[in-house]
Design a protein around this nucleic acid. Sequence first.
DNA 1: ACGCCTTCAGTGACATTGTCACCCAACATG
DNA 2: CATGTTGGGTGACAATGTCACTGAAGGCGT
Lengths: 220, 220
Amino acid sequence: MIGDWTERFQGTAQLPRAVRDRLLKVARITHMAEGTQVFGPLNVPDSLFFLYEGRIRVVQRSDVGRDIVLYRVDAGESCVLTTACMLAEEAYNAEGIAETDITAIALPKAAFDRLVAEEDAFRAFVFAAYSRRLIDLLRVVDDVAFGQMDVRLAARLLALAGDFKEVSATHQHLASELGTAREVVSRILQDFQKRELIAQSRGRIALLDKPALRDIAAAD
Amino acid sequence: MIGDWTERFQGTAQLPRAVRDRLLKVARITHMAEGTQVFGPLNVPDSLFFLYEGRIRVVQRSDVGRDIVLYRVDAGESCVLTTACMLAEEAYNAEGIAETDITAIALPKAAFDRLVAEEDAFRAFVFAAYSRRLIDLLRVVDDVAFGQMDVRLAARLLALAGDFKEVSATHQHLASELGTAREVVSRILQDFQKRELIAQSRGRIALLDKPALRDIAAAD
DNA sequence: ACGCCTTCAGTGACATTGTCACCCAACATG
DNA sequence: CATGTTGGGTGACAATGTCACTGAAGGCGT
């Protein structure tokens, strides 16, 4: 189905051919449909995940019914939070959701351990992945604790739009991105609309004035 | 000065004698006075730190003049954020402050790498440390994004008090623990005082009714 | 003891954000 | 066209953050 996936990852592409062949043997390739929970408090995987194709959204759920997106795992990255899940006894309530249909490589813990022990390149890859996520979380804490909502929303709209000039998302979705309430998003979007920075229709938002939005987002 | 520090850490106590002797040779022992910045954006160490004695407070500083405590590193733990700092190119603004006089073991990166590669026990220790911090940060995000201030403050007072019934901290200190403003802390403490849960004097807070505070803190 | 200075805490007005209880509009479906 | 579901708008209020002050408490030098 897919060929030599070890090409795809920084941590594996540099490994000797023999090691990579071994990996191709022991790893299982799994597919999951969009919307599937990849991992969560009640769904702790026993393997390390490498995301071959697709995107995973890692979300923190609150018990008051609000969510916040912690970060996204893109194709070519590994999902280290799963390893943290494996080791953690403490309670937490983050979960990973397949944001698209995904193809992932599940590497059994034993093989993972061995690889980390034996291969410098792989070890560096894993530590870099951990570090990246730590830094991502620092950023989230900073945003949530000190950032203003309009700034955060402008930034998120731009990020979600990418090169396009429209975002397909309900106010509720955006609220769940930022860990706030729908009403708050509605209010701010109304304001943006009045200032002609965006145009709204049901479930979609057109970014009319990206430079201005960038200005707002930069006030961070 | 200090004897065999390898006794002190989960990750090192289980290592073979020979390895530990090697460690004792390559590691540098450093002392720092209370208040010293152990690491920070402009002060990136090139070694991994093991905290032998004392406590480090890891703080996120905002550019609007507020702070928030991310977690504390206690004696016997390692400070993995420093390794993240080493690897990170991205900007961040967390820093570690010696909360007491500290004694730390600085293990050069090369020795660290070798140890991770060769010793299962040590590797497990390091990964556990990373996971712990990730989980800690999840908790912080949850608190900041979804927690109510009175709940968080009650919890923090109890945590800072430990077994004692008094906390030595100004309102400003408490605000910096929680990432809020002094006025907010003052307001909530006033309320607690009116309800006779605490008594205040300049720079100190007596916890009069810990059970009630625990009730408030549990509403999380 | 006395005044002086610095730090800490209290206060009211206001802005921002979160919560609640609604309403109405847009779309899908039979 | 009738109806149900989902997305979005609104006003009132609560909680939190900001600002510009005030005064109180304690340290210190004389």
